[in-house]
Structures are given as structure tokens and as C-alpha cells.
Design a protein around this nucleic acid. Sequence first.
RNA 1: GCGGGUAUGAUCUAGUGGUUAUGAUAGUGGCUUCCCAAGCCACUUGCCCGGGUUCAAAUCCCGGUAUCCGCACCA
Length: 549
Amino acid sequence: MPQDIYDKIMMLAKRRGFIYPSFEIYGGVAGFYDYGPLGSRLKLNIENLWRKFYILQDNCIEINTPTITLYEVLKASGHVNEFTDLTIDCKKCKQSYKVEDILENISVAEAIKKNKIKCPNCSTELKDAYPVNLMFSTKIGIGNARDAFLRPETAQGIFIDFHLLYRYAREKLPFGVIQVGRGYRNEVSPRQGIIRLREFSMAEAEVFIDPGEKTHPDFKKVKDKKLNLYDNINQINLSVEKAVKTKVINNQALAYYMYLTQEFLFSAGVDPKKFRFRKHADNERAHYATECWDAELFSERFGWIECVGIADRSAYDLQSHIDSSGKDMYALRKYDKPKTVEVKKIIPKMSELGPLFMGKAGKIKTILEDIELKDTKKITVNLDGQTVEIPKNCYEIVETKEKKFGEKFVPHVIEPSYGIDRILYCIIEHSFYEGEKKGEDYKILKFNPIIAPIKVGVLPLTSDERLVNIANEIDRSLRNAGIETYYDDGGSIGRRYARMDEVGTPFCITIDHDSISDKTVTIRDRDTTKQIRKKIEEVTSFIKEKISS
RNA sequence: GCGGGUAUGAUCUAGUGGUUAUGAUAGUGGCUUCCCAAGCCACUUGCCCGGGUUCAAAUCCCGGUAUCCGCACCA
């Protein structure tokens, strides 16, 4: 079978210490991969470049929350319900189906009662339906253990800290919070190697904005930049501003983060020709999203791969957590001048309420006090799912004047969510070049220096002790300057260049006999193989400049 | 999950029911050479796991696992 680019990359990745299949000596497990020495380094560099965009450029704050997440959190977020498919199997051919796919329009309960549904494949009767949840579940503690899941996204950890983060951000919107970490999804059958993992790395930003002004302070700076958009039919190239004006993209904030994403991916080494934004159709959006764009990267093996999702989650998550935890997670929109407003307030009469509602009277009192009064004809209260009318003699309505400094609201959230492993794979694929030297295959990973796991190869031309000493000194001074080096004195010089090219090292410093007399070395560029001579004392600053641009 | 193909050192690969299981690449040590995978010598690493058939299984059969292709799944 002819090897395609994926096979070649996975071969190289395993051989050179980028990516290994996990648990291999015990047979391996689908959906899990280890990052080897170079892979870990590459991943770290990509994540740190991402942080540069979000922390330094966009002024986001970073937090870290547990990967084990309490049941209540994911119940509130909708993941427990929405992540669950009711599944049913055929007795004979063992085919599994989502119940909703077989039923159409009939309620699940009704269908189970009748139980006459046959397998669409072999017409045999089906077994009982059972729920399948794509989250890994676990327990916290022993005995009176609490239910928990391994988080399917890092976002919820940010949402449930919102009230604290809002305070940290000095109660001003917009502000963004990022988290880089692992997420877990118990995929039914992961294929496509590193593209679909059960444990994966993601980098997410949750940007909290005022729903009244869905924009970004830096929008003006990017408004004329071009975005490469795809609406499921046509490829269109629009400026950020025009995309918003023509309502192709819903709002300025969303468009801003799309541009930021594009800029990040390009500087990480994504080929602009293999990049596009695709808008989610109505039926493929997640349960929390009102609008979602995917940044897709093209792979010769897998086609267009979703690598970043940029969603407008509206107020969905914060509102859900407010509703189920009761915590005040609102933001305040301050008025320019305090407003004096007439307020009608309900004053509960406990002497009447108490005897009438007994134990529930206290709860009714707090609800009544919070009601925003518009219609005074009939006061009803939602009590444990039941609507209860409160008799008129149980309360008094008082009109007062109050000074209001602002109004409370639930912020909206723009969420750019990056699949690090997929991006990493695509960057390797986009950086992979193959040629021939003297009849042998010659592979080069043309990594952008900023993400290359090794920045500089340090190579003494011969094993002459004087050259080795100089090489060691240069190696030391580069490392002291924070630059990853690889010292190699084994084999011919050509072989050593080839080794460095194959792992994407952008520069090689070669110490030759002239280095002894005139204190210079050659610096070789990976992509051109051209060499220039530099004074040894200038090497570190020269390299430093080259790898940061 | 279903159906089909595949599984031999770190990587690629030859091979047969029966001696010590090929070859190449890579790697290590040594000699030699030194600016783009040169050469020589020596060395290291392997038949996916479990069960069965057989005097004998890496080879045949069954099950599992992984992987590839198609279907389904991918909030």
C-alpha cells in the first residue's frame, strides 16, 4: 500500500520522538497518544505562542481549574442531557442506533411501551433502549461519594468562577479569561489517529461582553484585514468590517476573535492556502451556541478539519449557573448619572403568609421581595415547579423612589476554543517537505522558528578538541540565553544537517577550523541551506533575533 | 458499534508448518574522512496478545487488541 502523507508523518513522529501511541506495550488504546520529547516541546511552544496572543496582545487573564468536574456543573451546563444519546441495539445483527434516528416524531416513552420497533438493518426486534453519555464519569470520595465527570471542555471551570473573575477584572467589561488544559470525551469509535482523541488538549478563551455592545476595543485596528470565509457553498474573502456590516458575521466581537485566530494560526505555521472559516449550519450548532464559526485546516489525509470553534454562547452558561446555583453572577451596567426611579415594592405580610403557607412562607417571602413589579392585578410565585397565586391580603404594595446606579445583566460570552492536538498535527503536515538527496528520501519539517522544538543545532565539524571546546562554549551561551539547542558531534556533517532538518531545527551552527583562528562560525539556514559567517560573540543575539520574529 | 483488509526490531520490509527468522534505514562504540545522509569493522533492538489444532505454529484456526477502508457516531 502506498504511504500517504499521514503515514509518513506518523512514521517520522514516532521515530524522532514527536508522537507515540499510548500504552503500546499493552496493546495500545484507541484515542490516546503520548507526546515524546520533541512533541511535548512543540506543543508547549504552540501553547505559549497562543498565550502571547491572548494574554499579551488581548489582555486576557489565565486560570486553572480541576479536570474532574462536579455533576451539578455539567448538569447545569446541559452536558449531562445534551451529551446523552438514548441508544438501542438490534438483537441479531448488533447494530446500534440513536433512538431518535429510528423514531421520528414519536415520544421515546411511547415507543418503548409499544416496543415493536424493528432493526432497520435486519428487521429483528430491538432490545431495550439505554442512555449513552460521551463523558467519562467518576466519583469523588468513598461512601457518600459525589458524582463527577472528567470535563468535556475547560469552559465550565471559567463560568463557575465568573463572580470572582468579574471582581478581579475590577467589574469592567469586556474581559477575557483563558484556560489551557486537557479535556475528555469517551468517543464511540475514535478513528483518524491524533485527530480524534479521547483525551485531548485545548486552549479556550471565554470573553465576557455586554450584550448591548458586542464589540472589541481593538476592532478598529483589524477592521480592514481580510478573512477567508466559507458559507458551505462559496469561498468569500471579506474584510472584518464588511463581514459584520453585511451580517455574514453577527457582531464585531465575534469577528475580532476570528481575525485573532487567523493571525495566531498563520504565525504558528499554518499554510494560509489550507485555511478557512466555515459557518455552522443551524442543525450542527452545539446546544449552547447561537452562532459558531470553525477555523478549518486542510489535511491531505483527512480533508478539512475543524481545529478551532469560535462560538457566540450568548448568556447561556452564566444564566444556567445562576438558575441552578442561585449565585449572583450578574454584571452591572453603570448609568452615566444615577437615575431616580419610582419603584413599586411588595412588602409581604408575614402574619398572613405564615399561617397560610406554613413552612414555605419564608421562601415565598424572599421571592416576593425580588419580584420586579409591573402588573399588580395578580401575584404568582413559582414554587417547586408549581405556580401559586398569592392572595391580596398577604402583601402590601408600596411605591418608593430609589436611586439606581446601573442595571444588572447577564454578560454574553464569545468563546474561541482551540484543539491543540489537531492544530499541532496540521502544522506538521503543512510544514512537511520531501525531496531527494543522492537518491535518498530527504525530509524537512519547515517549522516556524518560534514553534520549532529545537532552535539551533551546534555542530563541531570534526572531533578536534579545539573545535569541540568552542562548540561547547557556544552551546552553553545559547542555553543560558534561553534558546533550545542540540549538540551533535556524531557522524558526517551532512548526516547531522539531515537529522536537524528532519526535526525542523531552523538553524545550525558549524564550528570549523577557521573558527580557531578568526573566532567566527557558520550559521546555516534550514530552508535555503545557505550559510553565513558570524563572529562567535554575535551568534547568540543574531539567533535570538531570528527566532523571535 | 457492524462488515472487510492488515499486524515481523525505533522505522520500513522479505519469508517458510521443521536448524541460529531476511534485508535496509536508524542508533551505539571504534577507525577514517570532513560543509550537506561517504566508507570500513563490531554491536544493540523483533514475529501484537490469549487460546486451539499439531510431534512441531511467527506461519493454520478461533477470540481479543491495535490500525486501515466502508457504514454508523463525532454535542
